[in-house]
Design a protein around this nucleic acid. Structure first.
Lengths: 189, 189
DNA sequence: GATGGCTCTTGATAAATGTCAAGATTTTAC
DNA sequence: GTAAAATCTTGACATTTATCAAGAGCCATC
């Protein structure tokens, strides 16, 4: 697993990777079965996660029990509940494996320490933030203005891989529609 | 104007503000009348903006001419079209003053230069990203799951100031609903 | 201070989406 | 391998929201 992370970081940062071995040594592996949780609502997000293999569903549950998916995090991407991680307040989100997954995680303490000691690590963190923020902006602009069919088409254009790996129920919860509506929209494509 | 920025940065960064004067010297003032644009779709976002006074509406226009507002940026907050700014690709968003506004802006070149030379400036940039990302996560989780009335209540709980400063039309475009629906929802509160 | 253009509201109607229920299909657990 | 559980689909109906149209109120400009 650590090799995948090393490759990923080298690809992001280029040649200046002094201290890379030490950085990587703080990441610990986790093996998740399908439906295992990385984080539940109300818990503190104590780690930053790097997905080596699999998919993690990031979702919330509202007052009547409906699940809404904010994002699916695929392999070679990063994951944290940023408010909980930074401020150590209870998480509002759940992180759950949608497939058997391999994950590396680094504790908040080590993460902060590395950020302070290695400018390149902080730079990588900044890049992760930039990418995450840009994706969020994209999603807001799409979803606030589009109707359900347009959102489905948007997802097919921008995230086609997700359809091959996730259940219809999960895709519906990402689109913000009921499973029945999703079934009907598929007929209109 | 520069005093406001200086105060803001000191509040963010604490005592370690070496180079602050030089940093601030790169920011140039802009006076905007209502409905003046800072950025239009298709242009390159060449600056990072700090709002000293006023409100900037961040919005997109879809194929049939409907405006959808992603965010309203109030005084003492930061603003950029992150994809356009970082990659120098055409902006998908418009930035327009919803009130007469005072803005400071720094060019991308100076911004990058300061980021490289002053770790504290980079730290502040990271904090802006963290906050912007956290707000976006909040908005996605709220809007994908809620119906229009719930979104209105959410806005009243989380952004009450906006109601006193913006037209109904703008609030409707932030909620992702038509002005008529907004009028009707107000009656249901 | 008149005029023209916005915005806001209200009504009627249409379209989109949700909910509930039932059956078919697939997956999971033992 | 089989039973139980979950998912997916389809239909009927209810609710939400959009669209179109018209009139009232407000505001900017000359």
């Amino acid at each position: 697993m650590h090799q995948v992370l090393e490759q990923h970081i080298r690809a992001k940062l280029g040649t200046d990777t002094a201290g890379l071995e030490e950085v990587i040594s703080y990441f610990q592996p986790l093996e998740l079965k399908r439906n295992d949780y990385l984080l539940r609502e109300g818990e503190l997000c104590r780690s930053c996660y790097f997905i080596v293999n699999g998919v993690i569903q990031v979702f919330t549950i509202d007052a009547v029990g409906n699940e809404t998916t904010r994002d699916f995090i695929l392999e070679e991407h990063w994951l944290m509940e940023i408010n909980s991680f930074l401020q150590q307040i209870p998480s509002k989100e759940f992180f759950r494996a949608a497939e058997p997954s391999q994950v590396l995680h680094i504790s908040r303490e080590h993460f902060m320490d590395l950020s302070a000691r290695f400018p390149q690590f902080e730079k990588m963190y900044r890049q992760i933030l930039e990418l995450s923020y840009a994706n969020s902006v994209y999603r807001i602009n799409s979803f606030v203005s589009m109707d359900a069919l347009e959102r489905l088409r948007w997802m097919m254009d921008h995230q086609p891989k997700l359809f091959t790996r996730l259940s219809s129920k999960m895709i519906a919860s990402y689109l913000g529609i009921s499973p029945e509506t999703y079934t009907r929209l598929k007929g209109k494509l």
